Simulated scan of single mutants.
Amino acid sequence: MKKKIGIISGMGTRAGLYFVNKLIDQIHAPKDQDFPEFILHNNSSVPDRTLAIVYGKKSPERELLRSIKMMNELQVDYIVLTCITSYHFVNMLDKELLKNILNPVELTINVLLQKGYRRIGLMATTGTIKSKLFHKHSEEIDLITLNEKEQEELFMKSIYMDGGLKSSEIKEEAYYLFEKAFDTLKEYEVDVMVGGCSEVQIGYENITTEIPYIDTMSVLVDEVIKVMNLKKTTNEQEADTFLV
């Protein structure tokens, strides 16, 4: 019997669909029946995660729990959330609810350690940074982030501005700010850049750089392919799909 995966999106919607497309692009499926069975809940009612963590605004926990319970009622085998910051709240849930949720932060840390990277340039929302999702592993890796001004005026603005990377119509200014944020962090003499936010990959595709880059969502896609027993495309079988 086919395994089913539940995908919780809406945080943001564009990033969630990007995740699905990336998954589809990396599997070998000659006919309809070869594609994975998945259930996508685009829960756009989830309150902003960074606002909740940094400014004490409405918690997303209730809506996240609604989506997770919905997926379990539909008897999915695995659950992923296409927002890294949301895992701060997911980690607080009852352990019984966590048993089939794939965690991209832990998966990414494992990849970094396996590859021998130690000085990591982390591009993530202020919520992810403040929640220390990645920093909990700081004894094993050295995490470098933008300073507060760079974080807000470059990276966060590129995501949240009118026409930012979260929106349905992205403006050129958003891509410009993202590239500036990326280049600024790269200058901190890091070994590798990590996209610790689902919108990072959207901005990354519009820049050219030689520094190694690992996308957290791509790591998650790779794990989904593995646990769902899916076949990779011929081009991806010998490659690390998450390492650019």
Rank of each mutant, 00 (worst) to 15 (best):
I159S: 13
E179I: 00
Q237K: 11
T184D: 07
L74F: 10
V90I: 10
I39P: 06
E173H: 02
D25F: 08
F19D: 11
V244K: 15
E189C: 09
G56C: 03
I79W: 07
I144H: 07
L243R: 10
K166H: 01
E187R: 13
T126Y: 10
K171P: 00
T126W: 07
T233D: 03
C83V: 02
D34H: 14
E236W: 13
K130R: 15
Q26K: 15
S198L: 05
G121A: 08
Y204N: 01
D191M: 09
V244Y: 15
I8Y: 01
I5E: 10
E172D: 15
I39Y: 09
C83D: 15
L185S: 09
S198C: 04
Y188T: 11
E210K: 13
C83N: 10
D183R: 15
E153I: 05
D25P: 05
L64W: 07
T216Y: 09
E169G: 11
I79L: 06
A29Q: 08
F134W: 03
Y87P: 00
K31G: 12
I170V: 07
S67N: 02
L17A: 13
E153N: 12
K157F: 00
I214W: 01
M11P: 00
E73G: 13
G10V: 01
Y213V: 03
E210S: 15
L230R: 04
K186Y: 04
V46N: 03
K99T: 11
C83E: 08
A29P: 05
T241M: 14
D77W: 07
L64T: 09
L113E: 15
K166S: 08
D162W: 02
S167M: 07
Y160F: 14
M193T: 10
V221N: 05
E96A: 10
E223F: 03
G6P: 02
Y18W: 13
S45C: 12
L185C: 06
T82G: 03
I68V: 04
L185G: 01
R119M: 06
V194E: 03
K171L: 00
T216S: 14
E37M: 13
E189D: 15
H135V: 08
I211G: 01
M92K: 13
N21E: 13
H137K: 12
M71A: 03
E179D: 06
D215M: 06
Y117Q: 08
F89E: 05
T208A: 14
I211S: 06
Y87Q: 00
A124R: 09
S59E: 04
D25Y: 08
E73A: 12
L51N: 11
P36K: 08
V244F: 11
D222W: 06
R66T: 11
N100S: 14
